[in-house]
């Protein structure tokens, strides 16, 4: 028996928003520790890794490890039926071919349940090596979303260049070029608005705008985002989801032909 209950359905709704542009289907691997999802997008240039820890749920029970293969567009349709303040419970029997979502309104006067067919997904699991990154940059998630959106108007790629002075985002194309430089913040009133850079050595890498924009669909999950970069390895874009886990996106850099 698997049962996971969240007091607010909004977290699950936001998680779905954060992955559904990249993935059409994915397996939620559930065990004692919580729920894990790892999947590559169809073109195999980015990978999504989601962790929701058992202790972040209001109630969590997983008697036996279970993999729930879900069509994310169907799951998204079902989650749209939940009010933001509704409690959501995901349930599945061992070896089940369906998963049930139960939504309860705050006053318990409305209880809805939706059963969804599970899919048998043939999965490729990738081993993500422990990496020491040359640069990590922490900044406001809304600021990062804005930068990606603004630079997308100029070209298909964004160059991210990190030095000890700060981080520079650049794009160029037919209409011209754009550069946005952020200096490390000396002091801020709100911690989530700070720009914090840890740098071992400077790094400059180029990434596809389109994917960075997909990743920023996770903005509502966290006030801050962390970018980790090293030469010739994938960029990690991490959003920590308060009290329950994180979503990480890995994107392979573009290289010269």
């Amino acid at each position: 028996m698997f049962e996971a209950r969240l007091l607010r359905s909004s977290i699950l709704k936001k998680v779905l928003e954060a992955i559904k542009d990249l993935l059409t289907q994915a397996t939620f691997d559930c065990d004692d520790n919580g729920i894990q999802l790892q999947a590559m997008d169809n073109s195999h240039v980015s990978l999504v890794s989601l962790t929701l820890r058992a202790d972040g749920f209001d109630k969590y029970r997983c008697d036996r490890n279970i993999s729930l293969g879900m069509n994310l567009s169907s799951m998204s349709k079902i989650l749209k039926c939940a009010g933001d303040k509704d409690t959501v419970t995901m349930k599945a029997q061992d070896n089940a071919d369906t998963v049930t979502f139960v939504f309860e309104s705050p006053n318990q006067e409305k209880v809805s349940d939706y059963e969804m067919k599970l899919m048998n997904l043939d999965l490729e699991h990738l081993g993500i090596p422990e990496t020491e990154y040359s640069c990590t940059i922490r900044l406001s998630s809304a600021e990062f979303a804005r930068i990606c959106r603004d630079l997308s108007q100029f070209g298909e790629s964004i160059v991210i260049s990190c030095t000890k002075e700060g981080v520079r985002f650049s794009a160029s194309g037919d209409i011209g070029s754009a550069n946005i430089a952020l200096a490390q913040t000396a002091s801020v009133d709100k911690e989530e608005e700070a720009v914090v850079i840890e740098m071992e050595e400077p790094v400059t890498l180029t990434f596809a705008c389109q994917y960075l924009n997909y990743f920023t669909k996770a903005t509502s999950l966290s006030p801050q985002v962390q970018l980790s970069m090293s030469a010739d390895v994938p960029l990690v874009v991490e959003y920590r989801i308060p009290d329950i886990g994180h979503i990480r996106y890995y994107l392979a850099p573009k290289i010269d032909d």
């Binding site: 240039v45 699991h125 990738l126 081993g127 790629s157 180029t206 390895v233 573009k254 032909d257």
Partner: peptide, 14 residues
Amino acid sequence: PLTQTKLQNFFTQI
């Protein structure tokens, strides 16, 4: 011209 590389070049298949 820049080429988007694939993740398989970086991560190990399990």
